[in-house]
Nucleic acid binder design. Sequence first.
DNA 1: TGTACATCAGTGAACGCGCGTTCACTGATGTAC
DNA 2: TGTACATCAGTGAACGCGCGTTCACTGATGTAC
Lengths: 195, 195
Amino acid sequence: VRYPEKQKAETHEKILKAAARSFRERGSDSEGIGGVMKELGLTKGGFYRHFESKGDLYTKSLSQAFIEVAERMRQVAESAPKGQELRAIIEHYLSVEHVNNPGCGCVLATLGPDISRQPAAVRKKLNQQMHVYRDAFAPYFPGRNIEEKRARFAVLFSSMAGVVIAARALMDKRDRERLLTAARSWFIQSFAGEK
Amino acid sequence: VRYPEKQKAETHEKILKAAARSFRERGSDSEGIGGVMKELGLTKGGFYRHFESKGDLYTKSLSQAFIEVAERMRQVAESAPKGQELRAIIEHYLSVEHVNNPGCGCVLATLGPDISRQPAAVRKKLNQQMHVYRDAFAPYFPGRNIEEKRARFAVLFSSMAGVVIAARALMDKRDRERLLTAARSWFIQSFAGEK
DNA sequence: TGTACATCAGTGAACGCGCGTTCACTGATGTAC
DNA sequence: TGTACATCAGTGAACGCGCGTTCACTGATGTAC
């Protein structure tokens, strides 16, 4: 069956998005191509018209995920009152919603350790995406120059990712909220200069 | 072949330690029972005389890992000058050595996201271990009462885990060292009250 | 406008591989007599 | 002290399963004439 005009591009993007969610929710194994394609009402055989391999999908879908997350953060920052952008970003990142929705959340917080186990080529590509991600936020950071802003970005975001990871590992709901609340007020105080 | 007196206990512990390292280095998949047993010069068939299943090994070896890491941290704290314990812990945790040796490093920083994907029973057991881990350090934390100390412990350790994860994801050695240095001085300043 | 043909996204069965698990077997050690 | 026997850690082959990948095939659409 030959399929309608623009369908291929649509399917391609659907696979990308579904995979980006699946990898973040379930890890880089444990669902697989068959599962993702099935979710979309397709069969796994067709996958290879869109991607070279599972590794190819992994790299591309995570790149996509970095972009999506950055875009969302940018919106949060833009809709915050002037001077409160960083605070808004911190509150958004350390929210219960983020912790409860890994599928559309920060890549570092869902697949960080996994990324460091990838072959060099994959890590390289993802490192580039991380830099794009970083440079989208550097403007909101305090610091005398770009180097200082970048350094603060790196410390804050990696720290917050750790908090989200720990919160997700905790089973007790109240422990989780307590951790998030404590972290929120501490990060805001330290980085956004308030309580 | 019937094997010498205490050999079983020794083998049991060897498997536990090798698995604790393997899981942290390569993730919860990607080496497997066969590989771990082979490393020890054994065949995989014998594995089931020691553990019920791979999941059983996972839980027990990570519990072991929590204990080992806590013990090491305790040593670091004890050999530090009076009043400098927390600072010593931070420096040790955020060292290049820790980043370069995931196999004997912090469990949260190697398998944090993985833990949150485990079935409830496994998470429960690991949560208990995390509490033991926490209570071993609470004494070194500032705070008016045990609750405050625990809260600070949770924020500091989860943040530091995030930094180690991010450092491991970075390919460029200098980026990595820059992140660690920035994080070290920031955490020490914030938690251990110095620069 | 109509017709013949090439294209190629998607199908569904099959293949290969690795891994977790099982199981019949081995044989040196510990124990009972 | 000596002998017969039970035990059980470890072996190695086999099994089943799921997953990534391949491939011959389909047939509606787009294109060439």
